[in-house]
């Protein structure tokens, strides 16, 4: 199954809608609640990052038997120092983002914890492309 969604930069009132839709989908596929939770927590963190830190982008979700492959791709501004960004507590979040309850610098570390395979391609001035793979144990797909 292949689905894609657009993510709008700065649109905090709708941040999480995509994760919510995909959560509904995963539940309909009878994927275990433990797998659903880690997939959705990682996706939601990535979705909020696109809303909070980027110019906007998309979520591309491929669900196959035994695995979910989710890509979150935005159009910039990219992450200059990825190692630093992956460090717990590191954040460049604006006051506006902090007011929304984000900006603890825990999103990327949280994504790493919840994924089975994680690959991030990014560079200053370029786009950020996050690839998350999850092995799933149950499901009717």
């Amino acid at each position: 199954m292949h689905v894609t969604f657009k993510v709008t930069a700065g649109d905090f009132s709708n941040a999480g809608k995509i994760s919510s839709s995909i959560k509904t989908l995963l539940k309909q596929l009878n994927i275990s609640s433990v797998d659903v939770k880690r997939i959705i927590v990682a996706l939601y963190e990535a979705e909020v990052n696109v809303v909070a830190h980027s110019y906007g982008g998309e979520v591309v979700c491929d669900i196959e038997p035994h695995q979910a492959f989710i890509q979150v791709i935005d159009t910039g501004p990219g992450i200059p120092d990825l190692d630093l960004a992956m460090t717990e507590g590191w954040s460049t979040a604006t006051a506006e983002v902090r007011e929304m309850g984000f900006g603890a610098g825990m999103g990327l570390p949280n994504i790493r914890k919840n994924t089975d395979e994680l690959s991030i391609q990014t560079q200053a001035g370029g786009h950020t492309h996050i690839m998350m793979r999850f092995y799933i144990s149950e499901g009717t797909i």
């Binding site: 905090f12 309850g101 603890a104 825990m106 949280n110």
Partner: peptide, 25 residues
């Protein structure tokens, strides 16, 4: 009030106590 902090929790059946009153909560 830090949503990413909440998102690290593994347990279910938690009461979330927060002063953050917006959609993201």
């Amino acid at each position: 009030d830090l949503m990413s902090d909440v998102l690290t929790l593994l347990a279910d059946d938690i009461l979330l106590i927060t002063g953050l009153s917006n959609n993201q909560a």
